[in-house]
Design a protein around this nucleic acid. Structure first.
Lengths: 210, 210
DNA sequence: TACTACTCCCCCAAATCAGGTTATTTTTAA
DNA sequence: TTAAAAATAACCTGATTTGGGGGAGTAGTA
């Protein structure tokens, strides 16, 4: 019999073999308890709220609605639970959408069993478990392109523009003349080969200049 | 004698006791080699390029120039090396500035010795080692505020505004009338109690509405 | 039914933006 | 220490955008 303080885990995974593997792994680990396991979001939706899980292991590639799109809905059904993504995909778009939609961790499926258990433990203790490559991609998303053609001041001004501030306001806050700001902007446009704020911001963000 | 394939590690840490601790730990781990250890960036700057480290352990609170501000300069001196931040500070501003300035990992000083070793290993293999709390903070930075007062369309439009696009262009890309965009913006301003693009963007970002 | 979200219309004045050219001073790097 | 790069500022023009006021219809939902 499982104790009351067991960590309650739910699983949504369409591949039966893999799903049963997780159920077996977690069910046989002391301190953990599987309170629900489903092959799709649709199946889970009806019952998961009463399962009252602490942690949900979620596959991203599900039949019907994808795991990523299911995330916000699951969040509403079980707002207190932590959701860990388990997937074979390591595409940046998927990762960032998953994290943006409320996932608290992101593991690839080659994660060894003991690591899955420790990830569940970790997320319960306030951590954010991620596979090594995922963590690197997340960190990289914060980093700038060293080879930016923009000078320090130009970069600073373009960042300010990206916050929606007018040229006049930027001038005031940087203690320089409006004409100077305009000069910088002209130079930025020339360097990036654009003719508007929006295009400059897009180009700069795409290339990690800002 | 250390072999040629040892991972070459440098350390910049002002506290001598801690620094010597790291030197001892790493120097006595097979497969790792300490090629330099310094109490400040200024001391490191002269010699670190010839040390040719694979990984640099960097403290953020240094005498003179701070570790975070030293990061870009260190990157230029040793562009091939991975830099791991080691610190007692867990403030978000510090973390994001460090990652933005080129750090490949972020560890707190209560990290046990074996974890420091495995973090060095991990970063060499393409990972992004982070302490549990740091990882959670990084993940949280991607997440939205569920309690946003903005509707889906308003959020979408404010996001578009934040990319620098004009109302006309937003209208075209969303296939709605310019007047509709203006209506949404008025509603956004009212809800956020602001009177300009810049203030709306700032409020929305501060509160993670976008 | 009332409410919310989304859509569209009219009006207005002020402010901002994009582009051109030139030129001085300050910083940085060779 | 000198040349190059970066940052600063000026003057010009015309087109575009912005913020704010009002009102109103439609669809979907509680």
């Amino acid at each position: 019999m499982s104790r009351d303080l067991d960590i309650r885990v739910c699983i949504i995974e369409d591949d039966e073999t893999i799903r049963e593997g997780y159920v077996y792994l977690i069910g046989n680990t002391p301190g953990y308890k599987v309170v629900g396991s489903y092959p799709s979001f649709e199946d889970a939706a009806k019952k998961i709220a009463t399962d009252d899980p602490d942690v949900l292991l979620l596959d991203v590639e599900l039949p019907g609605i994808s795991g990523i799109d299911a995330l916000p809905k699951l969040k509403k059904l079980i707002p207190e639970a932590y959701i860990l993504i388990l997937t074979v995909y390591e595409q940046d778009i998927l990762i960032f959408r998953a994290l943006g939609n409320g996932a608290s961790g992101y593991l690839t499926k080659n994660t060894p069993p003991e690591k899955i258990i420790s990830a569940i433990q970790e997320v319960m203790e306030g951590g954010g478990p991620m596979s090594a490559h995922i963590a690197r991609m997340v960190i990289s998303s914060f980093q700038r392109n060293e080879a930016s053609p923009l000078t320090r001041r130009e970069t600073e001004i373009l960042e300010q523009i990206a916050t929606g501030k007018s040229r006049k306001r930027i001038a005031q806050e940087l203690f320089i003349d409006l004409e100077t700001v305009k000069s910088h902007i002209k130079n930025i446009y020339h360097k990036l080969n654009v003719h508007s704020k929006a295009d400059a911001i897009k180009t700069a963000k795409d290339n990690k200049f800002i």
